[in-house]
Structure formats: structure tokens, C-alpha cells
Design a protein around this nucleic acid. Structure first.
Lengths: 330, 330
DNA sequence: TTGTAGGCGTTATCAA
DNA sequence: TTGATAACGCCTACAA
């Protein structure tokens, strides 16, 4: 270490950089000054070996470039950075087999915590591979959760889908919609399953027929194509509830540019997420907002709390949803 | 270490995980098998201390959620991961003062390389703070580069803007455009400056008047507002060349929804980047494509080469641009 | 092919 | 408030 050659002894430098340590203020200032001149920074790797804290939080995402994913990644990275953590980013494909390797690899970096936005990475898998990091289960209260996963072992972040979805259905119904379609995301996605069930449930409560399923995968192109197929080959509908905003864009464009239908006059469309793009005038999408700030803060709270007290009992944070009314219903 | 208690000695485990080491195959297999059972993974932090390789690549982005940024981040993370590197993600604001702190903090993680997409982080700053990592200068050949930065000290990734921009101007001119506007990005952005100069130059070469400047910041809302201002308060134009796609979207929406103008009949619009969203039917944007795969691969080549041979002379990779013709010119 | 010894940079412990 | 010492887990010599 360079700083010690400059003037004083060894551990003093360590203390100078550690706020809690007891060291004479003037001495600390001197050391910090010399350190800056010598362009010295404590080595996090060495530090992590002895403290057991890497100050790294692993984030696993299936597709960084998705609008929702990237906005969530952005918010989370910003929040983590403010707390002194660096984001260790990993990208996974839909290929499940890859994930074991990836997780093992990630384990080598000893992240203090791991957030897996990829829904094919189950918390049990996470817990098995990463012994240090305790996973958080992002769930939807109405879903069927297997016993082991629902165990109080894991902290949970629950998304209350009901409010936003009910508001959306009510609004569309209020404007005369009777025949609903649900534009689903990936089949195995928990979010899409949960949203689909909730839509079905609320339609039933309101005396409306169950929704027609349009099978999407959260992507624009698929939503565009499948919406076309639905109207050309299947039964037309007068309302589409999409499992995410990007899918809603695809549906809207299919309706307007290819089918010659008007939104919202002929078909009403509601999305889910409220990404930045949803307020772009060409879409001006009415959508169920999942508050990103709220979600990020809740997630961060869970992580920090678990890190501070690893043995504390598991906790569940709750995030709400609500409808943002724009121009695709009316 | 657990694996050694299981059966054999210490360094054998190290060798088993290091492909180059000499160890009896059957012994290696045994060790790897036991390691898997015991859920053991080599500690990268400890390894990095002795090898000097952290297998971490720092990436600094001003806004992860921007479509272009997130798509680039996605591509780069994927490419790095394939080479055994993990992405260490940092987010910077436009506030320049923050960056020094951030860089110092990042230095603590000892990244093997750093990619700064934030243009306010100059390579000289990077080189000063991070002694291990050698920065790559992402430049535009026609720009004025200060002597020290142009020094052969840095590897360069040059973006040849000319081809794509010339094609774009030619196409718009060919369809009758005479009065051009340049919708700029952030003022201090090198990319926007370079693109602006090139547009001006090519217009001059073709006997067209210099472009009117519409001052944007790469964001949708600003582009929308400033386009409105230009047509209402200033001189109307019949062609808009935007410094990025998102800005082009804002301009298009302002023209269509608020000004009652048709694109491309009344005003032609060309963007820059070719992000995923550009082929969405509502925009169907004609744009200058900056090939992401090509760019990512070039960047990766530079990084790997520099890592393998730190003292090799500096190299410049070149990435081209080309026009993707869709529906906003015609 | 295998094992032993030393050290990477840091912090925790303990003694002064 | 300070300093000496040990330890974190790994790899690169060197020796067997």
C-alpha cells in the first residue's frame, strides 16, 4: 500500500477510510489528502474478503433492452448506488438450462444480494446456489404458490394487481365495451398468469363473458401479428387488455394501420406498466401503472433490512397498481 | 475451503478450476464433482487479488432507460458475458462533479476495463483515475480532438457518420426537400456536434442552405415542444434530421397531432440510431443505422486485445453507418 | 503430477 | 487513539 509509505503506519489508513473507526480527525484528514494525491482507493475485493460484504448486488434480466426492464434497471441501479452498492448485471436467455451455470458463475462474485427479474429463476433455485444472498420473492397475492416457495424463508414483494385492473375493466365497460380480449405475455410468466386470472375474475364479477386469449410474449411484433390473426381469423372484440404496454402498442398499430379500425372508438385498449413510451402522442395509452419508485424503494428496503439483520423474520412489502387514463379508452 | 476436506489436498482444487493447470483428468473430474455437490465456487475476489484480473468491466451510462442506451447495454453485457466478464453498471447524472466521486468509487472494484457511454467522462479523466484500466475513445473522425486526447495512448472506436447522413440528405432532397432543420441532442454531446457538422457540410456540398437548428436533448418531450415552437414561432421547414430516433418520434408526433401536418408528404423526417422502436408502425421511421452488433464486437475486440497485451500500440476500429429506408421520407 | 510456502490488500482482534 | 498480528481464499512459484 502506497499511502503508508507516504507518512504513517498501516491500519491507520484503513481507519481513515472507515467512518466508524476511531482516529484523530487531523490524522484522518492528512491520510485522506495523501491518498488523494497518490490516487489511492481501498480495494473492495480485499475488503470483501475480510468483511464478508462485497457491496455488489447481482441483477439478472432476460432482456436489458426491453423498455420496462431497462426502466426498472435504471431505477434500481440508481437506488443501489445511493446506498453504496454497485450493480452486477447479468443477462439470461429464456433457456432455463443456462441459468444454473450463470448462477454458479455469479456466486463467484459473492454478491450481497441478488435480484432476479427473470421469472424462470425461482427463489428456491436462487437460495440453493447462492448461500450468502437471500432472495426476494416477487409475487402476486392471488396466485397459487407452491408450499416451499411460500415458506416464510423468503422476503416477499407483493404486487396488488386488483385495483388497477378493476379500474381498467370498469372504464372500458363504462364506455360500452362488452367483448374483451386478454393479450397475454409469455405463457410461463407469473405476471401474465396473474393478470390473466384477475381479468377473468373481474369480468365474471361484472357479468361479462370471459376474455378471449390472444397469445403474445410481451413483444411488439408478436402482439401485432396475433391481433391481426384474432380479427381476421377469429372473433373480433371491442376491448383489448394487454399484459404489458409494448404489447398494447403492437395491438394498437395492428388495429389502426392494417385493420382500419379506430382506437378507442371501435376498439378500446389498455396496457400494463406505464412505461415512458406510453405517453407518446402516437399511442397515448391508457394503462395500469405499476409505480416504479414505490417498487424500487420497497425492494431496496427489503434488501437493506435483510443485510443488516440476516436472521430477522421474513417480511412482505406491498406495491399497489392504479389506472392512468389517457386516450385509448373513450 | 470445503472441497479439500472432502478428499484431497489444497492446490489441486485450484488447478481443477484452472484449465491451463496440469492435473490428472480423473482427479480433476473428481474434484469438480465434489465441488458441485458441496456447492463450491472459486471466489473471484480472492482470485483477483493474486491474478490482478477482476473479470469485471465497468460500464457508465447516463440513463439506462433510454432505448438506445439500453440496447447498447444489452448487447455489450451479452458479449462480455460470453467472454467471461461480468458487467459492473454505474449510472451517472449530467452533473459533471459527481463523476469524479463515481470514478473513484468504481476504481475500488478494480475493473479490468471501463466503458463510459457518458460523454462527459473524458478518456483523460478516466485514465487519470483508473490506472489499471485503459480507456477506449469513442470518436467521430471529423471532429476536432484536443492533442492529449488524440494521443496514440488510447484505443479508438471511430464512427463514420458520413455515409449514412449523406444517404439521408440525398433521399430527402430527392423527394423534394429544400429547407432542412437539424434537431440536435444535448449541446455538449460529441455525437450531436459531429452529426450537426456533417449535416451542414453535406447540405453545403449539395447547394442547399444551412440547416435551421432546433435545440433538443435527445428526449421525446423536448423534441415535441421545440418542433412545435419552430413551426409556430419560427420558420417552417420541409425536412427534419434528428440526432437520434427518440427525438425524431417527438418531432413526428408534434407535426401530426398538433400541427396537422403530414409525414412524409408535408415534412420529411429522418432519425439516427435505428432503435427497436423505429420500426413500430406508428412511426415507421427512416433512420441512419449505427450497427449495434458491429459496434459491440469492435469494442470487445479492443478491450480483449488490450487486456491480453497491455503495452501493444494503440489501435483504431471503425464502425460504419447506413440509411434504413422506411416510411417517413417519400 | 503433486504438495509446500508465500503473499495479494484489507479489516478484526487484542494489547499497548 | 494507536500499532502489531492473524486471517480471509486464492494463485504463482518452487521443490519433490
Amino acid at each position: 500500500m502506497v499511502a503508508r509509505t507516504a507518512n504513517v503506519s498501516r491500519v491507520a489508513v484503513s481507519r481513515a477510510f472507515n467512518p466508524h473507526a476511531s482516529i484523530k480527525p487531523e490524522k484522518r484528514d492528512l491520510i485522506l489528502k495523501v491518498a488523494q494525491e497518490l490516487n489511492y482507493t481501498p480495494d473492495m475485493a480485499a475488503r470483501s474478503m475480510v468483511t464478508g460484504r462485497s457491496h455488489l448486488v447481482g441483477i439478472i434480466v432476460p432482456d436489458v433492452s426491453g423498455p420496462w426492464e431497462s426502466q426498472e434497471l435504471d431505477a434500481m441501479t440508481t437506488a443501489l448506488q445511493a446506498e453504496g452498492f454497485a450493480t452486477l448485471l447479468f443477462r439470461t436467455r429464456d433457456d432455463l438450462s443456462l441459468d444454473e451455470t450463470l448462477l454458479t458463475y455469479m456466486k463467484g462474485f459473492n454478491p450481497d444480494s441478488v435480484i432476479a427479474y427473470a421469472e424462470n429463476v425461482r427463489p428456491t433455485t436462487l437460495a440453493r446456489v447462492l448461500d450468502r444472498a437471500v432472495p426476494i420473492y416477487i409475487g402476486y397475492p392471488d396466485e397459487e404458490v407452491s408450499e416451499e416457495e411460500a415458506a416464510p424463508l423468503f422476503d416477499r414483494l407483493d404486487v396488488l394487481q386488483r385495483d388497477g385492473i378493476e379500474q381498467a375493466v370498469a372504464l372500458m365497460q363504462g364506455y360500452g365495451a362488452r367483448r374483451f380480449a386478454f393479450l397475454a405475455g409469455k405463457t410461463n410468466s407469473l405476471a401474465t398468469q396473474s393478470r390473466g386470472r384477475m381479468v377473468r375474475k373481474i369480468l365474471a364479477e361484472r357479468g361479462l363473458p370471459p376474455p378471449i386469449l390472444i397469445q403474445g410474449d410481451y413483444m411488439y411484433d408478436t402482439a401485432y401479428r396475433e391481433t391481426l390473426n384474432q380479427f381476421r381469423l377469429g372473433e373480433p372484440v371491442d376491448a383489448i387488455f394487454a399484459a404489458n404496454d409494448v404489447g398494447a402498442f403492437g395491438a394498437i398499430d395492428a388495429l389502426r394501420t392494417e385493420l382500419g379500425l379506430r382506437v378507442p372508438q371501435d376498439v378500446k385498449v389498455v396496457g400494463f406498466d406505464d412505461i415512458h413510451q406510453s405517453h407518446w402522442k402516437s399511442y397515448n395509452l391508457t394503462t395500469v401503472k405499476l409505480d416504479l419508485t414505490e417498487r424500487t424503494q420497497a425492494l431496496l428496503r427489503l434488501i437493506l433490512r435483510r443485510l443488516k439483520n440476516p436472521t430477522s423474520p421474513s417480511l412482505t412489502e406491498t406495491v399497489s397498481t392504479r389506472l392512468v387514463v389517457r386516450g385509448t379508452v373513450g
